[in-house]
């Protein structure tokens, strides 16, 4: 357990020192929310003065901003997993992963250390985005904090295992970054995040991780309980386990360090 914590603390320390972490994972989503927020408030003012806004429409608008916040959150689960797991690729490129394999540690300890640090980092990023979203833009993520916590942990697990899996497949950092970025962009298109909710083809969103993440957060936002979100949660958990299983299988390969 101690060895796992040594790996976690080293990874977290490294990531938190990185300007990329603060710039892309914290400043960028907050900036995105700020822009969306100003667009929505401008739209509201225009509607109120020119068209006479009804109470129902105002409620819809608030809900729509929350929807955008959820989409941003969903994207940053995946972007966070790219940035955090790219560190694993550089560990392999720098041969430091190989050096840890020569130490009296099991591969399970090394895997757990890296995986848990990925999950913790994502949880940190998402928590900061959520708190800032709530404080600065009044986003109502959920009224039930326990449910919010459970869903967030599951989504962090899914994103981390996905990132870990992809980082175990590609040996080259540039290739990994490129493929992961394309995957995230493709998922955003398939999910309709980049086309105002329009899907590329029928049920194309089912092929994305965003769909299940945003769907569960939307449910929480609308006040649904875990029972009503059973399908989303089950899919998120199952996909997380599948990717984690695949990542473990790749991690067990003897030439992973090369």
């Amino acid at each position: 357990m101690k060895a796992i914590w040594i790996i976690i603390s080293k990874n977290l320390k490294h990531q938190l020192k990185s300007p990329i972490f603060w710039l892309i994972l914290i400043a960028f989503p907050i900036a995105q929310l700020t822009i969306f927020s100003s667009l929505f408030s401008t739209a509201q003012v225009v509607e109120q003065t020119v068209v006479k806004l009804t109470q129902l429409y105002a409620t819809d608008t608030v809900f729509t901003f929350d929807r955008f916040a959820i989409i941003v959150l969903g994207q940053f689960f995946l972007i966070g997993s790219i940035i955090a797991s790219s560190y694993l690729v550089s560990e392999r490129e720098d041969r430091t992963l190989m050096r840890t394999f020569t130490l009296p540690l099991t591969k399970a300890q090394i895997f757990s250390g890296h995986m848990l640090s990925l999950i913790m980092l994502l949880l940190l990023v998402i928590t900061i985005i959520m708190i800032m979203g709530s404080l600065l833009f009044n986003v109502q993520w959920s009224a039930n904090y326990l449910n919010l916590f459970i869903v967030t942990v599951l989504c962090a697990f899914l994103s981390s295992s996905f990132g870990f899996f992809i980082s175990s497949v590609f040996k080259n950092g540039n290739m990994f970054g490129g493929i992961m970025s394309c995957t995230v962009i493709l998922m955003s298109f398939l999910n309709g995040d980049m086309t105002s909710g329009k899907l590329l083809f029928r049920n194309s969103d089912f092929l994305t991780l965003n769909k299940w993440i945003t769907s569960s957060y939307t449910g929480l936002n609308q006040g649904l309980g875990l029972r009503e979100l059973a399908l989303d949660i089950t899919v998120i958990g199952a996909l997380g386990l599948i990717f984690a299983g695949a990542a473990i299988a790749l991690f067990r390969k003897e030439n992973l360090h090369e």
Partner: peptide
């Protein structure tokens, strides 16, 4: 190892 295996940062 033959290659450097240290954290540059």
């Amino acid at each position: 190892p033959q290659e450097l295996a240290v954290y540059e940062s």
